[in-house]
Design a protein around this nucleic acid. Structure first.
Length: 846
RNA sequence: GCCGGUGUGGCGGAACGGCAGACGCACGGGACUUAAAAUCCCGAGAUGGCAACAUCGUGUGGGUUCGAAACCCACCACCGGCACCA
C-alpha cells in the first residue's frame, strides 16, 4: 500500500477532534505543562510558512510532554483587533466583525490541517465581547490605581494613517505599517504608567529562564542609569533641575541646555524675562515641525540651538554665571528636560560648544579636550575641580553626591529610558476605553457590571481627518449618563491599541468560559504560569514587556499568584525566501538568455542590479508579497502532506536562526517519511529490541529526548533519519519500530498514529509512553581512537572501550602508517584521551 | 556611534578543545525496468597521483595549546536591535 498522506491526515485529524485527544483538564494528579505560542493576527492572507515554525516547535515539546505523562495545555486563539482588518472592512464595505470571522475560520482550517495538538475548546478571540470585557476590566482597575491617566503629550502622528502611533510603531522616523511620514502633534491621550514598574521589570529578569538576547534587549530598552539630580539657581530666581550621570564633572560645566519644550520657558516668557523672544519662539516652532524622520535622517547630527538672552544660571560649585541655551539635542521626555553641559567630557556637549564657541574646561585628565571630549571613566583623574582634585572618577562621583546632599542642592537619582505607554488609538476596530467624561465629574470609570462596553453596530466609520476616533461621530453611542452624578455625559471615543488584548490572553486559556472573572482562582492556581513561551524577537520590547507589566499589575491586585507570566522564553528565527531577482536563483534558460543579451554573467548581474537595485545581489531575502516569493503552507501540504511540512520546517536549520526555505529540499523529508512507511507497513515480529539495532535505538532515544528540550529539532530529525537508515541495514523487530514511531510521533503525528494502528499496538501513538533509554546500552564495546603523531592525524586504531594508554599505544604502533612515522624516533610524550585519541609526540631520529 | 548575533563543501546545515563536513538537497555511478519515473545500494571538501598516499582546508592576520571551527587579541564582511537617553 502506498503512503496516502492526504487520507491518513484527514482520518487522524477527525479522530483527534472527535475524541478530544488533546483536551487539557484543570486539575488532577499529573504534573502540568503549559506551552504557549504567540497567537496569530488573522490577516486576510491566511497562514504563511513563517507561522508553523514556532507552532510546530512547541507542538513537538507539548506532544513529548504529553507522552511523558504531563497534563498539557497547548492553546490557540486569535489576536483579531487591528488596522489591516479595519482597512479591509472599509475598502470592501464590510463590517469588521465579519471580516474577522471569515479570517478566523480560514486560519482555523489551516491550523487544523497541520495537525497541531491544540485544545480547540479553549480557543479565544480578542474581539469577542466576552473576551474584551476583561481587557476593559483590567483597564478600569489600572485607572482606579492611577496607572491609566489622560494627558496632553506630543504624540507620533502618522499623516497617512491619520492615527497616533506608539514610539514602538515608529521605525526610522516613519510609520511601521504604511511607511508614511510621522510628525509630532500635541494631543490628549490615555497613558499607562509602565515606568512605575521599570525597576521591577528590570530586576525580575534575573531569575527568568529567558534566552540571553531577550534579556539584554529588554534591559537596554528599559535603559536604567544612575546619577544625580542637581539644582542650578537661575537669574529668574527659580531652579533649573538637571539629571547627570557625571556629577564628578560639575566643575567643567560651562553652560546649560534646555529642550525647546521645557515648561520653565513659558513662565519666563510670561514674566518678560526673555529678551530674544522672537528667536526663541522661532526655534521652538522649528523643533516642533521637525518630524522624527528629519531628526534621525540628519546623519551628521549637527547641533543647532539658540541662546536665551535675559536668563542665566549659576554653577553651584564654582559660583560662575553661565549661559542657558535651547537645543533639540536635549529631549523633553528624558531626565528633567534640561542638562548641564560639560563639553570637555561629553561628545554632544563638545560638538555644541564648538558650534557656538563656548569655553571647554578639562576636569578629568587623560585625553585632549581640544580635539574631542574625553569620556573614559576608568582611567581618568580629576583636575581643575577644587575638592575633587586627584580623585578617580568613581570616587569623585560619590564625593560630589555627598557634597550636593549636604548643601541640599542635589541627590542621587535613577533614570530610565522607558516611557509611559501611549494607550489611545483613534480607531474603530479596538476595545472601547470604558471611561465616561462628565462635565461636572471629569473622567469617571464605568461600572464593572456594565461591561463589556460594546462597539456600536454601524455601517460606516471612515477615519476622520481631524484625528478624532470614528466613534466620535456616532452620537447615539457617545451620549450617555454619568455613573456618578446621573447627568449627561459622553463615552471616551478612543480605543485601545492592539497590544491590549495580547497582554493577558494566556490567562484566559486557563479558564476561557468564566463569566465571573477573567480567570478563576482555582484555574490560575493550578496552571500557575506559562512554562514555556516561544515567540518572535520583534515582540521583545513590545508585547513581551507589556504583558510582563500587566501581569505584575494583576499580581499586585491579587488576581494572579505569580510575579511573572512566563517562566521560560525562547525565540525562533525567520523563514526567508529566495530572491527571484538574483541571478543565481533564475532558471537556467533565463540565465542563458540574460548572458546572451548582456555579454556575460557579470553583465547580466549588472543589468539586474540596475533594474531591481542593490537587493538584486542578495540571494536570500525576506518573503514578501511584492516579490512573489511567499510559500503557502496549503500548497506544501497538498503536495507532500502536513507531516512532511512539519518535519521539513523543523529540519531546515537551526531553530533560533533565520533560515531560507528551499523548495527542492522538502522532498528529502518526504522521502524520509516514505522510508518509515515502507519499514512499518509490513507486520513486524518480536516485541523485544533486536540485538542488531538495540544500541542505536538507545542512543537515538537519548539524542532525540535531549535535542527536543534544547530546541535542536534539526539534529533530532537527523538522528531519526540515521536510525531509519540503520533499520534498512538491519531488519527491525516490532519492538524496534515501536520506539521509532514513538520518537517520531511529535514531528509526524498522523503517520505515526496510522502505523501504530497497523502494527496493532495499543491505544494511540501520540498518547503512548515516551521511550526511556538505558545509558549502559548506549556504550560501544569497541572504540576507534584517532592516532596523532605530533598533533597530526596519522591513522586510527580500534581498541576495547576504556582501554589504557599502554594498550592503545601498543595497538597504535602496530598500525603500518603510524609505525612509519615512529620508526627511529624518540617518543617524548604521550597525550591520551580515553576512548577518543592518542597523540604521540616524537623527536625525529637521525 | 552603541548593544547583540553570524561567517564551515555547489546549497541548507552537523561537530562536550580531540578523526571537520553528521543528516539532507543537488550531483555522479550501479541495481531493478523494454524505457523513464519511483525505489534500493555505492561514491563524493579542494589540489596532485593509476594508486597507496601527500599537501591544503571552517571570513582575514596573529596568539594560547601536544591538539583550535571552537579559547584570547586585532581586523573584515553580513544580519538584527537601539540611536543626540545627558
Amino acid at each position: 500500500m502506498k503512503y496516502d498522506f492526504a487520507a491518513i491526515e484527514k482520518k487522524w485529524q477527525t479522530y483527534w477532534d472527535e475524541h478530544k485527544t488533546y483536551a487539557a483538564t484543570n486539575g488532577g494528579d499529573k504534573p502540568k505543562f503549559f506551552g504557549l505560542i504567540e497567537f496569530p493576527y488573522p490577516s486576510g492572507d491566511g497562514l504563511h510558512v513563517g507561522h508553523p515554525r514556532p507552532y510546530t516547535a512547541i507542538d513537538i515539546v507539548a506532544r513529548k510532554r504529553r507522552m511523558q505523562g504531563y497534563n498539557v495545555l497547548y492553546p490557540i486563539g486569535y489576536d483579531a483587533f487591528g488596522l489591516p482588518t479595519e482597512r479591509y472592512a472599509i475598502q470592501h464595505h464590510m463590517r469588521p466583525e465579519l471580516v474577522t470571522k471569515r479570517n478566523v475560520a480560514r486560519f482555523t482550517e489551516q491550523l487544523k490541517m497541520l495537525g497541531y495538538s491544540f485544545d480547540w475548546d479553549r480557543c479565544i478571540v480578542t474581539t469577542d465581547p466576552d473576551y474584551y470585557k476583561w481587557t476593559q476590566w483590567i483597564f478600569l482597575q489600572m485607572f482606579k490605581k492611577g496607572l491609566a491617566y489622560k494627558t496632553s503629550i506630543p504624540v507620533n502622528w502618522c499623516t497617512d494613517c491619520k492615527i497616533v502611533l506608539a514610539n514602538e510603531e515608529v521605525v526610522n522616523g516613519v510609520c511601521e505599517r504604511c511607511g508614511g511620514p510621522v510628525i509630532k502633534k500635541e494631543k490628549s491621550q490615555w497613558m499607562l504608567g509602565i515606568t512605575k514598574y521599570a525597576q521591577r521589570l528590570l530586576d525580575d529578569l534575573d531569575d527568568l529562564d529567558y534566552i540571553e538576547r531577550v534579556k539584554t534587549q529588554q534591559r537596554n530598552w528599559i535603559g536604567r542609569s544612575t546619577g544625580a539630580e542637581v539644582d542650578f539657581v537661575t537669574s529668574a530666581g527659580d531652579k533649573l533641575k538637571v539629571f547627570t550621570t557625571r556629577c564628578d564633572t560639575l566643575f567643567g560645566v560651562t553652560y546649560m541646555v534646555m529642550s525647546p519644550e521645557h515648561a520653565l520657558l513659558a513662565d519666563w516668557m510670561k514674566r518678560g524675562l526673555i529678551q530674544n523672544m522672537e528667536a526663541v519662539k522661532e526655534y521652538q516652532a522649528a523643533a516642533a515641525r521637525k518630524s522624527d524622520f528629519e531628526r534621525t535622517e540628519l546623519e551628521s547630527k549637527e547641533k543647532t540651538g539658540v541662546k536665551l538672552e535675559g536668563v542665566r544660571a549659576v554653577n553651584p560649585v564654582t559660583g560662575d554665571e553661565i549661559p542657558i541655551f535651547l537645543s533639540d539635542y536635549v529631549l523633553a521626555t528624558y531626565g528633567t528636560g534640561a542638562i548641564m553641559a560639560v563639553p570637555g567630557h561629553d561628545q554632544r556637549d563638545w560638538d555644541f560648544a564648538k558650534a557656538f564657541d563656548l569655553p571647554i574646561i578639562e576636569v578629568v585628565q587623560g585625553g585632549n579636550v581640544e580635539e574631542c571630549a574625553f569620556t573614559d571613566c576608568a582611567t581618568g583623574v580629576l583636575v581643575n575641580s577644587g575638592f575633587l582634585n586627584g580623585l578617580q572618577v568613581e570616587e569623585a562621583k560619590a564625593t560630589m553626591i555627598r557634597w550636593l546632599e549636604e548643601k541640599g542642592i542635589g541627590s542621587e537619582k535613577v533614570n530610565f529610558k522607558l516611557r509611559d505607554w501611549v494607550f489611545s488609538r483613534q480607531r474603530y476596530w479596538g476595545e472601547p476605553i470604558p471611561i465616561i467624561h462628565c462635565d461636572k465629574c471629569g473622567w469617571v470609570p464605568m461600572d464593572e457590571k456594565d461591561l463589556p462596553l460594546m462597539l456600536p453596530d454601524v455601517e460606516s466609520y471612515e477615519p476622520t481627518d481631524n484625528g478624532e476616533s470614528p466613534l466620535a461621530a456616532i452620537r447615539d453611542w457617545v451620549e450617555c449618563t454619568c455613573p456618578r452624578c446621573g447627568g449627561p455625559a459622553e463615552h471616551e471615543t478612543d480605543t485601545m491599541p492592539n497590544w491590549a488584548g495580547s497582554s493577558w490572553y494566556f490567562l484566559r486559556y486557563m479558564d476561557p468560559l468564566n463569566d465571573k472573572a477573567l480567570v478563576g482562582e482555582d484555574a490560575v492556581k493550578y496552571w500557575n504560569q506559562v512554562d514555556w513561551y516561544n515567540g518572535g524577537m520583534e515582540h521583545t520590547t513590545l508585547h513581551l514587556l507589556y504583558s510582563r507589566f500587566w501581569h505584575k499589575f494583576l499580581y499586585d491586585i491579587g488576581v494572579v499568584p505569580t510575579k511573572e507570566p512566563y517562566a521560560k522564553r525562547t525565540s525562533h528565527g525567520m523563514i526567508l525566501g529566495q530572491n527571484p531577482h538574483n541571478f543565481a536563483n533564475l532558471p537556467a534558460e533565463e540565465q542563458a538568455a540574460l548572458v546572451a543579451e548582456y555579454g556575460d554573467e557579470k553583465g547580466a548581474r549588472k543589468h539586474l542590479r540596475e533594474r531591481y537595485g542593490e537587493m538584486a545581489d542578495q540571494q536570500i531575502v525576506k518573503m514578501s508579497k511584492s516579490l512573489g516569493n511567499v510559500v503557502n503552507p496549503d500548497d506544501v501540504v497538498k503536495a507532500f502532506g502536513a507531516d512532511t511540512l512539519r518535519t521539513y520546517i523543523m529540519f531546515l536549520g537551526d531553530f533560533e536562526k533565520a533560515a531560507p526555505w528551499q523548495d527542492d529540499a522538502v522532498k528529502g523529508c518526504k522521502r524520509f517519511l516514505d522510508r518509515v512507511w515502507n519499514l512499518c507497513e509490513v507486520k513486524r515480529e518480536g516485541d523485544a529490541l533486536s540485538a542488531a539495532n538495540e544500541k542505536e535505538i538507545h542512543k537515538t532515544i537519548s539524542k532525540v529526548s535531549s535535542d527536543i528540550e534544547e530546541m535542536k529539532f534539526n539534529t533530532a530529525i537527523a538522528a531519526l533519519m540515521g536510525l531509519v537508515n540503520k533499520f534498512y541495514q538491519n531488519e527491525p523487530s516490532r519492538g524496534d519500530v515501536k520506539v521509532l514511531l514513538a520518537l517520531l510521533s511529535p514531528f509526524a503525528p498522523h503517520l505515526c498514529d496510522e502505523l501504530w494502528e497497523q502494527q496493532g499496538f495499543e491505544g494511540l501513538c501520540c498518547t503512548s509512553q515516551w521511550p526511556e533509554h538505558d545509558e549502559s546500552k548506549t556504550v560501544d564495546a569497541e572504540k576507534t581512537l584517532a592516532v596523532q603523531v605530533n598533533g597530526k592525524l596519522r591513522g586510527t586504531v580500534t581498541v576495547a572501550a576504556g582501554c589504557t594508554q599502554e594498550t592503545a599505544l601498543e595497538a597504535a604502533k602496530l598500525d603500518k602508517k603510524v609505525a612509519g612515522y615512529l620508526n627511529g624516533a624518540e617518543i617524548v610524550k604521550i597525550i591520551f584521551v580515553k576512548d577518543k585519541l592518542i597523540n604521540i609526540i616524537i623527536k625525529p631520529g637521525k
